[in-house]
């Protein structure tokens, strides 16, 4: 057995030379046969896969797309009176209009107003041809998600930026990243590949909805009954009590958000 090992060692002298510095002391290596190589290759494999997983994989997973028109929110917010809701408004039936349609833009942009080449492009390519702009919606949820804006904005009094961030302060449209596999926006998973977040708007996964709902309206009764009030554990939820206005937190309400 040991002879075999030695033959192999000779065959790969070069490799040994190269990595000698990071290896354990020589005598140990001699004592214990091939252990040095084994640990070395383990580390190589380990490190390489970490680089692939954390660095290369996210780059490959998302494709980068540019918005058809570079949109300046700041200018628009200044020009309108009612903030976000001037363009992103609620319809009479309570539904949310989302990204404005051409009809709304045409109110001002019938003809080119300023000198921005983006506006020129907008007027020439879309307004003139009567074609809707194929905006890429950063916060577009998968089809199975039902989200009532009015319940959150009108009834829950939540600010737009809680979920959408300070998009109103942007002067340019950032790159839209699309998950090649699932086909939806990276904003849902979040920029951070580990899925960590600092701000409420960094991620838009189901857990983030749940987190907010739990924080706002959970009734921490069960916790008192439990023997371990462990602070880092999420707060438990209770079945709805009768007459209070409450945020939807029940586990029994999946289809409130899913269709």
């Amino acid at each position: 057995m040991s002879t075999l090992d030695e033959k192999a060692k000779e065959a790969s002298t070069e490799a040994v030379d190269e990595v000698e510095t990071v290896l354990p002391p020589k005598e140990k290596k001699q004592d214990n046969g091939p252990w040095g190589y084994i640990i070395l290759f383990f580390i190589i494999g380990f490190a390489a896969s970490l680089v692939i997983g954390w660095g290369i994989f996210p780059k490959l997973l998302y494709s980068q797309k540019k918005q058809p028109i570079d949109f300046n929110h700041v200018i628009h917010v200044e020009a309108v009176e009612e903030g976000c809701e001037s363009c992103h408004f609620f319809r009479e039936d309570g539904s949310f209009s989302g990204v404005p349609k051409l009809v709304q833009c045409v109110d001002c942009h019938e003809e080119v107003m300023g000198e921005d080449p983006n506006e020129v492009k907008f007027v020439e390519e879309y307004v003139a041809k009567g074609q809707e702009v194929p905006w890429l919606v950063y916060s577009k949820q998968p089809d199975c998600v039902f989200f009532s804006h009015i319940a959150h904005v009108k009834m829950g009094k939540i600010e737009c930026d809680t979920c959408h961030g300070h998009i109103g302060e942007s002067t340019h449209s950032r790159v839209y990243e699309e998950n090649r596999f699932t086909g939806y926006s990276r904003d849902i998973w979040g920029k951070n590949i580990a899925g960590l977040k600092k701000n409420t708007w960094d991620r838009m996964k189901m857990d983030d909805c749940a987190e907010c709902h739990a924080e706002n309206k959970a009734v921490p009764k069960t916790v008192e009954r439990l023997p371990w009030p462990i602070s880092w554990m999420p707060r438990p939820y209770e079945k709805p009590t009768s007459s209070q206005v409450r945020t939807q937190i029940d586990k029994d309400a999946c289809f409130v958000c899913h269709k």
Binding site: M206, D207, A210, E211, H213, A214, T222, V223, L226, M233, P234, P236, Y237, K251
Partner: peptide, 11 residues
């Protein structure tokens, strides 16, 4: 895991 919002602290 208990971190999931679907987790309930019940028996």
């Amino acid at each position: 895991l208990p971190f999931s919002f679907e987790w309930l602290w019940d028996i």
